[in-house]
Amino acid sequence: MSSGSAATARETAGSPEQEAVIELRDVAFGYTATPVVEDVSLSIQNGEYVAVVGPNGSGKSTLMQLMLGLLEPGTGAARLFGEPAHSFDDGGRLGYVAQHASASKEMPITVREVVKMGRFPHVGFGRLSSRDWAIVDDALDTVGMSPFAARRITQLSGGQRQRAFIARALASEAELLVLDEPTVGVDVESVQAFYGLLESLNDRGITVLLIEHDLGAVTDNADRVVCLNREVYFDGPTAEFVESDALAHAFGTAANFLGDSE
């Protein structure tokens, strides 16, 4: 968990003994002729806690989609656990948590039913076995949501809801947890507790990839920062990022960014 481990991990990138969780080589992508991201090369190793930061419209979410294989790169190559990301089909190894607002539909569904979905990549068309349910309940317990298991998800606070989604990723036994601005709209105390949970999961060996525009959250929690604004401005340990001038380069000025709002 030291900031040095991230750097060490990067140095071993590409070595045959350790397969990168995510590997991007010269990736470019654009919805139109203008690229949203270009010339992006980076590698994330097993067990890292990486944050991708950048201003609004910097291509963070697009990069995340490229990493997860939801988009195919225009040029370059994106690999997930050593396979081309676009055709990667072992969804159980991935956990995804979106902004909590995206799950605020008025659907009658309990927390336990949401976490149960984490087992779907494993059971396919079948029913959950007692072992599957044990994993579900264990995941609920890990994130401290067991007392809320039977509650409707729409009745939870933003922070609790995000914990339920983390539990869903845990239930799928995800090795890589990808979070897209997970604390937008979540109250401050819950945000702190949320990042505490992420850290403890990372300590357990889960690779964490955080897409974030909240710089405070990033510098307090992640071991490694990738600073993006169409191209990568910085990629290194968080401590170095704080002292670098990457921020000013990527965002124009730091003050601009900190005053930015979604």
Binding site: D141, T142, V143, G144, M145, S146, P147, L156, S157, G158, G159, Q160, E181, T183, V184, G185, V186, D187, V188, E189, S190, V191, Q192, A193, Y195, G196, L197, E199, S200, H213, D214, L215, G216, A217, D220, N221, L258, G259, D260, S261, E262
Partner: peptide, 29 residues
């Protein structure tokens, strides 16, 4: 919504506040 104090979640909740990083968080959204 949003009124949950994570410290009240019982034992599991306690785990999560203990591990919470108490440092200041920029909430610029």
């Amino acid at each position: 919504m949003g009124s949950i104090d994570v410290g009240d979640d019982g034992a599991a909740g306690a785990m999560w506040t203990e591990e919470a990083d108490g440092s200041d968080v920029v909430t610029d959204d």
